[in-house]
Design a binder for these strands. Structure first.
Lengths: 347, 347
DNA sequence: CTGAAAGCGCTAACAA
DNA sequence: TTGTTAGCGCTTTCAG
């Protein structure tokens, strides 16, 4: 076990060499010419004494902390947040970095979010990940600009910071495509009522995909409600009792799909025999546990966290110029996760 | 916006005073006698220059980083993890501390978990929170002992470290009590098959509560399965088709309860009219979204994170002696969350 | 009331 | 091949 009271100096005297030598061998400095015997001795002694470097001192000297700040808007409110953090943490660890996290509320004032960033800056993090929990436009604290930073799951209103977001359109196309592929021609959409990019993009992709398949996308049935289970239930009841009730249903998210399941059951409709359903989000707790398992589209949260971290580190290490990537957000794909809620429509 | 290139020295020359003076006024050192005018001037200049302290340098000098390490076993696999982190983060922020998080796998080798702790120690965190994602016994890395630390949601096999855990027994008693209170006399339990403390404690509390209410706790029906939706479904089918089928059902967790909902539906049983159900965990995504809403017992994850952090900081600041608290784990209560899945049994 | 200077543990020019 | 030394930015003792 390492001893926190042993410094490079102690190792030096114990080994009968200078601190420079110790520093050189322990850091494997390339240009240092040190005899193999000395190297061995230093390493052995360091080991024996349980020496561990003081990263604070190193950082003070080198102006590099090896720490990344992660400010997360509303960390625990959604299970997605954890995936972003996990992706970031693992990518960071793989490159020898650590993560400092600060939670902030999406509804907090700009000043308070700026203070959160400030705390990270005072600790001299090498870069900052700013993660929001919905894919939407955010107003960023200005001091974010003082170190390399990247935005996760949103784009900035100003729009000159590197960002990574999910491919809403591709995901929606995959979802609708799965229904089409199974042979459905009467396809409906249960949409969200919030004015977020996902709402518009998924709707647009829904209509476009149908139209491209030779159906009348503009006339396809759409019902909107709040994107919760209850909203899904209500919207589903409406859409399933329409004249042009669909046999294939694309839901804005898994929660709405869960509501649709209940509505279908109440209307005597069996899934997937009478009604095929596809969701969005792949919230495991819901999607995998509904009966039958819900076919849905997964959001690349882990991947976004990892991507952002990789590129942030590249920028910190001078391997990438983030300003170049800032022109357009990077879009990560949303893969379809097939379970058992889709089948061919009844003839 | 603060300027990362301005140091105390720059403020000093700009204000025409020494760095000592600047340090004294900015830190509001109690014994420093400095004229109000000087104070004002220093503050104004610091503000103008956008001075922000370098916490690394401060830490190096004071041997206090104001950082807490949080090692979290399997951060994102359960939604609970986020609540622990949030509780810890908010408590830390309230006292001027920040959190460094490291994710580790519960199944990782002791050495690898030790290396994770080591990384935190190299960064000279003032204390460490070690959070596991299930309430169980863990084998801790030995180097954890070198700074104040507290265990969240588990107890150590060695058992000489301060720990905070949920009140399994109290929670189970509350759950069963709610069924009893509604008038049920035939109460069953869907238990987990894992050999974790919760499995034993909830079972024991289940039987004891019934017995204390004058029923035959030892004879009460219990079926065990893996604690997932499918397991709950299977166990529920078995228990509900028994000779002594219960009218009130206590489920090991919300996922099993979700399975029980399906089993009940298939057997033509309406919840709560024909069958009252109570869960455990309060996984919002499930409990609040089932129909009818599931009455369940909430695990105090947020509270445990906050409690652990509070006491860890107290220890770091010398206000508490953690070794005294290490004798017995602290137990935080699990409140009953009432929704709509319990009613009186049919006469 | 204010300042000079030592030193926290380390790295990296420069010297030897 | 190895050692001396000057800081990184700050706090704090000790002197004015």
């Amino acid at each position: 076990m390492s001893n926190r009271n042993i410094g490079i100096k102690d190792v030096a005297v114990a080994a009968g060499v200078s601190v420079t030598t110790v520093s050189h061998v322990l850091n494997e400095v390339s240009y240092a010419r040190i005899s193999p015997e000395t190297r061995d001795k230093v390493r052995t002694i360091a080991e024996q004494l349980g020496y561990g470097p003081n990263r604070l001192a190193q950082a003070l000297r080198t102006q590099r902390t090896g720490m990344l700040g992660l400010v997360s808007e509303d960390i625990a409110t959604t299970p997605h947040a954890g995936r972003i953090i996990l992706g970031a943490e693992e990518a960071a660890k793989a490159r020898g970095y650590n993560l400092m996290i600060i939670n902030t509320s999406g509804s907090a004032s700009l000043e308070s979010r700026q203070a959160d960033v400030e705390a990270l800056l005072e600790r001299r993090v090498d870069g900052i990940l700013y993660a929001t929990m919905y894919h939407r436009n955010v107003e960023l604290p200005a001091n974010l600009g003082s170190v390399p930073s990247v935005l996760v799951d949103s784009v900035a209103t100003g729009g000159n910071i590197t960002a990574v977001i999910p491919d809403e359109e591709g995901g929606a196309r995959a979802a609708v495509g799965a229904l089409l592929e199974a042979g459905h021609t009467r396809v409906g959409f249960l949409n969200n009522t919030d004015d977020v990019p996902a709402t518009r993009q998924r709707l647009q992709a829904f209509r476009a995909t149908l139209t491209e398949a030779g159906l009348d996308g503009d006339a396809a049935p759409v019902e909107s409600e709040v994107s919760e289970v209850q909203g899904g239930y209500e919207a589903a009841r409406r859409i399933l009792t329409r004249e042009d009730a669909p046999t294939g249903l694309f839901c804005y998210n898994d929660r709405m799909a869960m509501g649709a399941y209940r509505a279908a059951a109440e209307l005597g409709l069996t899934i997937p025999a009478d009604l095929s359903v596809v969701g969005f989000d792949d919230q495991e707790l819901i999607a995998a546990n509904l009966h039958p398992g819900l076919t849905t589209v997964a959001l690349p949260h882990y991947e976004m966290g990892a991507w952002a971290t990789e590129h942030l580190i590249d920028a910190v290490e001078g391997k990438t110029d983030l300003t170049l990537m800032a022109l357009h957000p990077t879009i990560l794909s949303c893969p379809l996760v097939r379970r058992d809620s889709i089948t061919a429509p009844r003839p």
